[in-house]
Simulated assay, not measured.
Amino acid sequence: MSEMRPKKSVDAETPLCVLGIETSCDETGVAVYDSRRGLLAHALHSQVALHGEYGGVVPELASRDHVRRVLPLVRQVMGEAGISGDDLDGVAFTAGPGLLGALLVGASVARSMAWGWGVPAVAVHHMEGHLLAPLLEAPAPAFPFVALLVSGGHTLLVDVRGLGQYRILGESLDDAAGEAFDKTAKLLGLGYPGGPALARLAEQGDPGRFRFPRPMTDRPGLAFSFSGLKTRALTTLRDGPQDAQLDADVARAFEDAVVDTLVIKCRRALQAVEARRLVVAGGVGANRRLRAALAEMVAEEGGQVFYPRIEFCTDNGAMIALAGALRLAAGTRCGLEIPARARWSLEELMPV
């Protein structure tokens, strides 16, 4: 069977209206982005309550919940945007990396809708979506820039020269920063997701009581390692003076160590590629102390730092719709296959 001929021709000069669907993990995100009018509507359903009692994401439950949520969210968002399928120029979806079952839900729905509406489907890399999310804001960063992608599943420093022109400068050798936040929060009895709760507890902590190491900053390079900080928190909680202030002081020491490590590595990355623009995306990018420290460092380097709005730091459909529109304008589209990849390096993407 051959591909259905799209009802609309699309080229780089055509204003595009794209539906974006994100289902890579534990959030169902849907959005409509118009290349001329901007973001028209977006909605997000979080599965935090669903997975909270298990202390982490249960893949099968995540996939089933995406099945329940994605079509109602599509109807909601298209209604809020005031459009129908006839108004769309493409449907974008997260094809990876992520939980394979969850990815297949969004990919199957998106590919089917694109077929039914006679428009192209665009498979989007999840981390490219995060990387491009600050382009939804004003002012938007111009290429080239260094991107810090920091979340529960990934910690990457990327040299970004243009759309699809990505070179990974450094990544975590073990736990991602957000994963380390969640695991340390669990040690403190803070539940799931633990990152925001740990940050709130750290506000009450004494920054001078404990000092945790800044991993891999005593040697050259841009790689990260955060698993040792979780172990340091565990031993401090076990062996430290048992008082009412202990948990807050450990949370503060942990957060300070992660923040300082990220700032040191970002400074090195900016200097290594002689860049003046830093883009920060991913859930940990919403951390207040990290934002303040990065702003100070980038100012010292004579540069600028860019973020998506707080609601777009975590997984969302808006970043997928935007990335899909940019890819579609550059001629990218998928065939009749339903692609989904649990693992997928940014460096495998084709430049445009």
Rank of each mutant, 00 (worst) to 15 (best):
G101P: 00
L103A: 06
L173Y: 05
K186Y: 09
A253G: 13
T261H: 01
W344F: 14
Q47G: 02
E53C: 11
A299N: 12
A244S: 14
E301M: 14
L39Y: 02
A233D: 01
P196Y: 06
L190A: 00
V48K: 11
P134F: 05
G118H: 08
V58M: 14
L157K: 00
L136V: 01
H126P: 01
Q245A: 15
G331T: 04
A281E: 14
L149D: 03
P120Q: 01
V298Y: 10
L16R: 08
A299C: 12
L290R: 06
E179K: 02
F93P: 01
V70I: 13
P213C: 04
R327N: 14
L290V: 04
L229I: 05
L294W: 08
A95D: 05
L163N: 00
V48P: 10
A180P: 03
V158C: 01
G152W: 03
A199W: 01
E3L: 15
G96C: 06
G118K: 05
A41Y: 09
V150S: 01
E60G: 05
A269L: 12
E128A: 09
R277G: 14
L163I: 03
D243E: 07
Q245P: 11
A295T: 14
K265Y: 05
G52S: 15
V67H: 08
D243Y: 00
G189N: 02
R232L: 14
K7R: 15
V57A: 10
L290H: 07
S225W: 09
L336K: 09
G285W: 13
G20P: 11
H130K: 05
R291P: 01
A49S: 14
L44V: 12
A323V: 04
I320Q: 04
L346M: 15
A223Y: 13
T231W: 11
L131Y: 06
A185M: 07
A269C: 12
T235I: 14
L188W: 05
L349C: 13
P6I: 08
D256E: 15
A123V: 10
A269R: 02
L234N: 00
K7H: 13
N287A: 10
A325H: 06
V305M: 11
A176V: 01
L222E: 10
A81F: 08
M216C: 11
L71H: 12
L234G: 02
D89R: 00
D65Y: 05
G170E: 01
D218M: 07
V48G: 11
A233R: 00
D260K: 05
P213N: 01
R309M: 15
G335I: 08
S225F: 11
L132W: 11
H125Q: 11
M78V: 00
L104F: 09
F224N: 03
T23C: 07
E3D: 15
